[in-house]
């Protein structure tokens, strides 16, 4: 049991299960999944479907955070990719045709890839602090999206586009398959190749990695490209869901929720060791919490208060000082000043 508790995914999984149990007790229909016209429906299915944009963004964010970085521009990239895709469909003569939609989606993803490359260039090549480097695009990106849509909310009615967010495949939402595929692809690439361990090496100790011959520049660049691309796909799903490109609302605050999901999943913001499974669970926790708050009759506008409390609790649990208190309570160690400098005692002694 204690070994199970020590597993890094224990607390995230525990929190998710606890949330589901609490919800089920409060409203039994929460757990119920019904079959209608050969398609599954229910609160849980909704969660799995609605979490897709956040999931994609959080997966990319995990990679970026693993390299000791952060990508603030994901929301803006979502807005741009949605704007590009929908503007192309809107402008085409046959908005309903699958090929038009495919071209438009590829264009949207392509643009996001370039934006990710831009972030990566600033961070990996020009060596600019990630927060600052991605702040540029965070500021300018929405402006670009607004220019693309001429400042309007571009609405589009196109069957193939609608399918992306609301369609069903094999009785399950299509959006679920998108994020499952993304998560699986990332997990496989990171773990079956050496990319995962090299990413962690760069995140834990960039200088040592460089001297060990690791091509950290390429790895960091790749993480931002992945983050940008995934945010682009997220933007398209978002637009498909509301059937419009809304340059102001698309991905608003999503960078913050994505970071929260990554941290909830157990990846440290200091970079290094990361877990894709943890991030998936983190996103599901956030989405379930969101659904819970909604159920409680709280206006969705007020839900940030709850997330603030979650953030505070999570960071407190991770804080070394609280760990110390925990140890002090369970006996043994005394707390004392200056403990945080202790770690380097061996080198300086």
């Amino acid at each position: 049991m204690t070994r199970l508790m020590k597993h890094r995914l224990f607390w995230p999984v525990f929190s998710l299960l606890a949330l589901i149990v609490i919800n089920t007790i409060a409203r039994p229909q929460f757990i119920k999944i019904t079959m209608r016209d050969g398609e599954f429906y229910g609160a849980l299915i909704d969660i799995l479907r609605n979490c897709a944009p956040l999931m994609l963004v959080a997966l990319g964010m995990t990679l970026v955070i693993a390299t000791r970085g952060i990508d603030l521009s994901v929301g803006a990239v979502m807005a741009v990719s949605g704007a590009v895709t929908l503007t192309i469909i809107d402008g085409s003569s046959s908005p309903g045709s699958t090929s038009t939609v495919l071209v438009a989606i590829l264009a949207g993803i392509g643009v996001s890839l370039v934006l990710g490359l831009w972030n990566g260039f600033l961070v990996a090549v020009l060596d600019i602090q990630p927060i600052i480097a991605t702040l540029v695009l965070m500021l300018a990106g929405r402006g670009v999206a607004l220019l693309i849509t001429d400042g309007f909310i571009t609405t589009v009615n196109s069957e193939p586009l609608n399918f992306v967010a609301t369609g069903y495949l094999f009785a399950l939402p299509f959006a679920l398959f998108i994020w499952l595929a993304a998560a699986a692809a990332i997990a496989i690439v990171e773990r079956r190749t050496a990319l995962g361990v090299l990413t962690e090496a760069v995140g834990i100790n960039p200088e040592a990695s460089r001297l060990a011959g690791v091509r950290s520049r390429g790895i960091i660049l790749g993480a931002y490209v992945a983050s940008g691309t995934l945010a682009g796909i997220a933007g398209i799903i978002y637009s498909s869901n509301i059937r419009a490109a809304d340059a102001n609302a698309a991905g608003d605050l999503i960078e913050l929720y994505a970071i929260l999901a990554v941290v909830l999943g157990g990846t440290s913001l200091m970079g290094g060791k990361f877990t894709i499974a943890g991030t998936v669970i983190g996103v599901l926790i956030i989405q379930t919490l969101d659904s819970t708050i909604l159920f409680l009759g709280v206006s969705s506008a007020q839900s940030p208060v709850f997330f603030a409390i979650v953030v505070v609790i999570v960071v407190l649990i991770q804080s070394p000082r609280v760990h110390q208190w925990g140890r002090a309570l369970t006996g043994g160690f005394r707390t004392r000043p200056g403990t945080e400098v202790r770690n380097d005692a061996e080198v300086t002694a």
């Binding site: 540029v136 695009l137 500021l139 300018a140 402006g143 670009v144 607004l146 220019l147 001429d150 400042g151």
Partner: peptide
């Protein structure tokens, strides 16, 4: 377009 403000500030 007011959008230019953001772009210019970003640049």
């Amino acid at each position: 377009e007011q959008a230019w403000t953001r772009i210019i500030i970003g640049l």
